[in-house]
Design a protein around this nucleic acid. Structure first.
Lengths: 177, 177
DNA sequence: GAAATATGTCAACAACATTGACTTAAATGG
DNA sequence: CCATTTAAGTCAATGTTGTTGACATATTTC
């Protein structure tokens, strides 16, 4: 229905001379447009996977676990906790769901047998790929519309948004420099 | 502490010739780097305001309400629900907190007295500005590091990430065209 | 063999969302 | 004018995801 249509984002009048080139809409106050674009973009970015996850009885937390195990097969529980920045009790709940459902497998570490190394089963990989496919397609579409050549700019901006402790690990382009 | 340091993002080898110009790291599969950058960037983007909100006993939901009332003073409850895409029961809880705390004021609509028009009190404006200041500063920093001239590219990309029904309302640059 | 480490688990609780049902007040339309 | 619709508020139950705190178990390390 979407009846009441306020114009979202950018009904702020531009201050000063801001016409053609040089400084494209530099806000004096906070950049409300980008603040809101981030909010709406992220909501839709995770909203689509949410609907697929719901069909398995899973939620966003399961998505994140699937994603990072997929990306770093064989990582330990401690490493996963370090990435997600949640407590082990929070992780335990969703991890248990995923193991019981046959999406994740745990094997004792070879060197340190206290560790539980985490792997995706074929089933887990299929789901992880389905989810990544949705988000990847959305990104590809947006990138195509924006101009794929601008990808490094976008990656850099997002990396710079991250708290610096973490940012060090997220090189925009390891080949550059 | 951050002891276990996996290299997050982009440990995928580049496929094909991908050296200098033309197509900067175009992924064949899903673009894991941007997927993860969005996750980490958004987490830190909202994480900082969270800590200020916690000092008032508020959470993220209060932040969103404060933000959009600030941006659209006098909007109706229905309009706010339409923006946030949550149920009125969810909104009611946080709105009640904000009204009781003296951050938000409700006035009956002039034409339609069933409507409750929402306004920020000076106190509410102060908090909203504090929160927007944090996020704005983070964006300004990231934009500065990336090159402020690229702002339209970034805004465009984020806008394209949004589901198209909403995207129509989020013009990247209303002056253009 | 004692201490530290990796993991798991139980319990209580909080924030934020949902669905469903119902109320009140005001506007609207025959 | 009265019936219907609309805007908003409320009560209750429930689910997901996070938290703290306490404790158990197995294994490694010193």
């Amino acid at each position: 229905m979407r009846k009441s249509t306020l114009s979202l984002v950018d009904d702020r009048p531009m201050r000063g001379a801001n016409h053609s080139a040089s400084a494209p809409v530099p806000p004096d106050g906070p950049d409300f447009e980008l603040i809101e674009l981030l909010f709406f973009a992220y909501r839709d970015f995770v909203g689509e996977p949410d609907r697929l996850l719901a069909r398995h009885g899973f939620g966003r937390a399961h998505h994140r676990v699937l994603h990072f195990i997929n990306r770093h097969q064989g990582l330990t529980v401690a490493e996963l906790l370090d990435i997600l920045e949640i407590t082990k009790q929070s992780l335990a709940r969703v991890l248990k769901d995923l193991v019981r459902g046959g999406f994740v497998e745990q094997r004792a570490g070879a060197e340190d047998r206290r560790q539980r190394l985490l792997f995706l089963t074929p089933r887990g990989q299929a789901l992880a790929q389905g989810l990544a496919g949705m988000q990847g397609a959305r990104i590809a579409r947006a990138l195509g519309a924006t101009g794929a050549a601008h990808r490094p700019v976008i990656a850099r901006f997002l990396a710079e948004l991250i708290d610096s402790e973490r940012g060090a690990e997220v090189a925009t382009d390891p080949a550059a420099s």
